[in-house]
Design a protein around this nucleic acid. Structure first.
Length: 427
DNA sequence: ATGTAC
């Protein structure tokens, strides 16, 4: 066991070395969570930072209570890494940026409709309700936003491989260091928000007995939001690639192109010290679902790691670098140093597409902690092995509404299939 | 992190 595991109490741990600065408010939130009724174990991960009342970068194990507020509004938020058939050495940044600015994220209705059919397939596989007309009103209301990235820390980022650390694992995953990859970070958008709000309106922040009807009703919506978020990331990847005229993501057989797709905001059944219970993860990546990506800010590398499932961390890992500055302070702190144009480039030579000025500042690399410290803390705690490092090429956040076109335009244009070259397997 | 209201 490494020395980056700090015991705050018998039931509360923080996985962070002395080099990793963690905000006091986040620790307070963490220790508060440990006092909730039925809470048995609480772990802060190396990217721990304060959230709205509850910590981000934390995993919490309860024996028989479910706390929707611990999962937060973005149920099913996660990371998906897909391979592309683009060669890194052939990428022309100007051309890549132009293509994405011109044609990414138009045709929303076409793509959300495609997402709906994917969602129905996924639900059928799970044995869940497959007909949206017979499901919850909330679920129907948000179908139209499927395939949208959203705001905050969400992104779709093209990445190149900058270093292979574990060649045999790298090869076993079928990875190719000459190829370009796409990392998608998004969640369940307004759907998850609505599910949490319904719960909070009815029950406040108190938890639900796991065996109650109310908990089961929440879990049904929660599970739906997980599938929705997974499909959302697939559609985001598909439309990014479609904008580049590539037949890349095999949507009907995700396994062939999807290297990983792992949610980090969720509650699921698990066990600790032989007891069954519920692991709540908020900005905490599961360590028992294969390889995962731990991204830094848009100006730093991301780490592909092999988790070592470990009870001391509640089978969980950091989900990223973690914020250093609150959003509201970023523009004031950075505007004298960086113009908007300057923020559209990074030290690693990558581009940023973000037409939202406030968001451009809020997500500046300076606003985030160093991801290498986060990852080295995980390595030191014997929780991961690093497989490879990925470097950003272009980070896509959001286009102005002018660039994406009006709703009527999206309705009349028929995209996708017609525009795609050579048929092929891409949807 | 979100959709909506201002």
């Amino acid at each position: 066991m490494g020395n980056s595991i700090q015991f705050l109490s018998e039931h509360t741990r923080l996985i962070a070395s002395d080099e990793n600065w963690i905000e006091g408010e986040a620790i307070q939130q963490l220790t508060h969570v440990a006092t909730l009724k039925g809470m048995a174990q609480v772990v802060g991960l190396p990217d721990l930072h304060p959230g709205r009342g509850y910590p981000i970068g934390a995993a919490c194990f309860s024996n028989n209570m479910i706390y929707p507020a611990l999962v937060g509004n973005d149920i099913g938020c996660g990371m998906s890494l897909v391979r592309t058939d683009l060669l890194t050495r052939k990428v022309k940044l100007d051309k890549l940026e132009n293509k994405l600015r011109t044609s990414a994220f138009s045709d929303q209705l076409f793509w959300s409709d495609h997402g709906l059919s994917l969602l129905q397939q996924a639900l059928a596989t799970d044995g869940l309700s497959t007909n949206p007309d017979h499901s919850d009103q909330t679920e129907r209301d948000f179908i139209k936003s499927i395939g949208t990235i959203g705001g905050g820390n969400h992104f779709a980022e093209f990445q190149k491989i900058s270093k292979v650390v574990d060649q045999s694992r790298f090869d076993a995953l079928g990875l190719d260091s000459a190829q370009l990859y796409l990392l998608v970070h998004s969640g369940s958008r307004g759907l998850g928000e609505s599910i949490l709000r319904q719960h909070v309106d009815q029950f406040g922040h108190q938890g639900l007995a796991a065996d109650s009807e109310e908990a089961q009703a929440y879990m049904r919506k929660h599970d739906f939001a997980l599938r929705w978020a997974e499909v959302n990331r697939s559609i985001i990847a598909a439309r990014m690639l479609s904008a580049l005229n590539r037949k890349l993501v095999d949507l009907d057989n995700r396994s062939s192109d999807v290297v990983l797709d792992v949610n980090h905001n969720l509650v699921s059944q698990g066990s600790f010290a032989g007891d069954r219970g519920w692991i709540h993860r908020k900005g905490a990546t599961p360590a028992d679902q294969g390889v995962v990506m731990i991204p830094g800010s848009r100006g730093s590398i991301s780490y592909l790691v092999q988790p070592k499932a470990c009870e001391v961390s509640l089978y969980s890992l950091a989900h990223g670098a973690g914020r250093k500055w609150v959003r509201t302070e970023c523009e004031a702190r950075l505007k004298s140093r960086f113009t908007r144009k300057a923020l559209e480039r990074t030290k690693l030579g990558s581009r940023v597409i973000c037409d939202d000025k406030a968001l451009l500042y809020e997500e500046a690399p300076e606003a985030y902690k160093a991801v290498d410290v986060v990852v080295s803390d995980l390595v030191e705690a014997n929780l991961v092995d690093v497989i490879a490092e990925f470097s950003p090429v272009l980070t896509f956040k959001t286009l102005s509404s002018k660039a994406t076109g009006s709703k009527s335009e999206a309705r009349t244009k028929s995209p996708g299939y017609a525009r795609r070259p050579g048929g092929g397997k891409c949807c």
